[in-house]
Design a binder for these strands. Structure first.
Length: 428
RNA sequence: GUGGCCUUAGCUCAACCGGCAGAGCAUCGGACUGUGGAUCCGAAGGUUACGGGUUCGACCCCCGUAGGCCACCCCA
């Protein structure tokens, strides 16, 4: 017999973890509702070209992390599992003519994403994201609104010490000139660059800015900054984003070296960062403006901005900060029986109560009454419904497991009495 | 994708120098046949991740594979 296991980089969310994820999704849905983002669902896979075009052929996400699906026939189109939601949402925006809806169109998606990366704590091949997109508004007020939305998510989920990192990476008008300047600068210092950085110089010079190599610190500090090179429009946009964030009271830190890994970003770039927790995956979420993406995917020129928040990393951060896990509510009552073999009566009575909307567990093990009550106690059930000979007269014993008291109740009154007791339990 | 550390029961971990694979928790049962969270007693649970090699003998040493973790790359 082979021993089977979940595929590398995936994991089973057992009930406790699953309910933790559920709770986070509930907070996300609640926030999305309050901020006017409507939930939608998109396929878990797309034509590979959607990602290649949208995210960028040269990005790591597409180049080495894309989960490509084997083609079923020679001429079928190539598909890949989604590594993020933005490209798919924008594809849907274009496909369904959402430019005719009142702008901006504010959308949100919750679900699993896939990247073929080498796994580590907080980095999985299947992971969950909350994604929000506002398409059709050039900002900057909507930029601030969406940054605040993400920030509120961490506040409401209870993740401590989350920092907002903020930067502007310019647009088509000013970034090319800056890149030239940056490349020239590092080119002049090529002899001082570590091997890895020298190779990145051609591919993506922006990446050198957030290098973790200590040998780069001095060079990076003296490098030209995008903030000093923004064109007038981008500088004004960035200033206005900050004014709005200040007014909202969202704490943020300007991070001139913050660049993002996907090609489609313009102007506003931001990241939510777990401060203090050493090592591991400190980036909890990130996002930015993508004013060219809709056009790239075949739509009319349309601005947009969005974020993706990693729910697995939030769960990890909550564990580490010692946040109490949500405790599953115990059953209101457990139905037990004096006759170990009579599971029919227990199931029937439980069914009756469940039909009235009550959370009731039927003890179906064929063991003696003492054992059944023990099991009910360990469940932290409030009541035990004890079935015995009284059932012939249409009665059962209703036992309060906390008080230790019990009395005879007519089967017809049982649901009503239990429901009433449940209410008083909840209020006090 | 690169480098390093790790893997013993469901969980947390023992096992001397290479010499009979063990405990706590959890599970199930008994003490207790119509009355419960305690206690005591007992049972079950293992191809020591998997596959090779060295050896009289391997949880222990060597090689490979898988999985986890850490640092990179990168990102959520």
């Amino acid at each position: 017999m082979p021993s089977f296991h979940a595929p590398r980089g995936t994991r089973d969310l057992l009930p406790d973890a699953s309910s933790g994820l559920n709770r986070l999704e509930g907070i996300a849905r609640s926030l999305a509702g309050r901020y006017g983002y409507r939930e939608m669902d998109i396929p878990i896979f797309e034509q590979t070209a959607v990602f290649e075009r949208g995210i960028g052929e040269a990005t790591d996400v597409v180049e080495k992390e894309l989960f490509r699906l084997a083609s079923r026939t020679e001429d079928s189109e190539a598909w890949a599992l989604r590594p993020e939601a933005t490209a798919g949402v924008v594809r849907a925006y274009v496909q369904h003519g959402m430019q005719t809806w009142p702008q901006p169109v504010k959308l949100t998606v919750l679900g699993p994403m896939f990247r073929y990366d080498r796994p580590q704590a907080g980095r999985y091949r299947q992971f969950w994201q909350w994604d929000a997109e506002a398409i059709g508004d050039p900002g900057p007020a909507v930029d601030a609104e969406i940054v605040e939305l993400g920030y509120r998510f961490y506040v409401e989920s209870g993740v401590p010490d989350v920092q907002v990192l903020l930067n502007s990476i310019g647009d088509g008008a000013c970034r090319p000139a800056y890149l030239e300047q940056l490349t020239a600068y590092f080119g002049r210092h090529e002899a001082e660059l570590p091997e890895l950085e020298r190779r990145r110089l051609d591919a993506n010079p922006l990446r050198l800015l957030d290098s973790k190599d200590p040998a780069m610190a001095a060079l990076v500090a003296a490098a030209p900054r995008i903030g000093d090179c923004l064109c007038e429009a981008c500088a004004a946009h960035f200033a206005a984003v900050r004014t709005h964030l200040d007014a909202l009271g969202v704490p943020y830190r300007l991070e001139p070296t913050l660049v993002r890994g996907l090609d489609y970003y313009t102007r506003t770039a931001f990241e939510y960062y777990r401060h203090g927790a050493e090592g591991q995956q400190q980036a909890l979420g990130g996002g930015g403006r993508y004013d060219g993406l809709v056009e790239l995917l075949g739509g009319r020129p349309t601005p947009g901005i969005g974020f993706a928040l990693g729910l697995d990393r939030v769960m990890l951060a909550l564990e580490k900060s010692g946040a109490a896990a949500a405790v599953e509510a115990p059953p209101l009552a457990v139905v037990v029986g004096a006759d170990p073999t009579d599971t029919v009566s227990r199931l029937r009575v439980a069914s009756l109560l469940r039909a009235e909307g009550l959370f009731v567990r039927a003890e179906l093990a064929q063991r003696k009454l003492g054992r059944q009550l023990e099991s009910a106690s360990r469940d932290h059930a409030h009541f035990a419904v004890i079935i015995g000979d009284e059932l012939n007269g249409g009665h059962v014993q209703l036992k309060d497991l906390e008080a230790g008291t019990q009395h005879l109740v007519a089967l017809d009154d049982l649901a009503r009495d239990l429901a009433r007791a449940a209410k008083s339990h909840h209020h006090g």
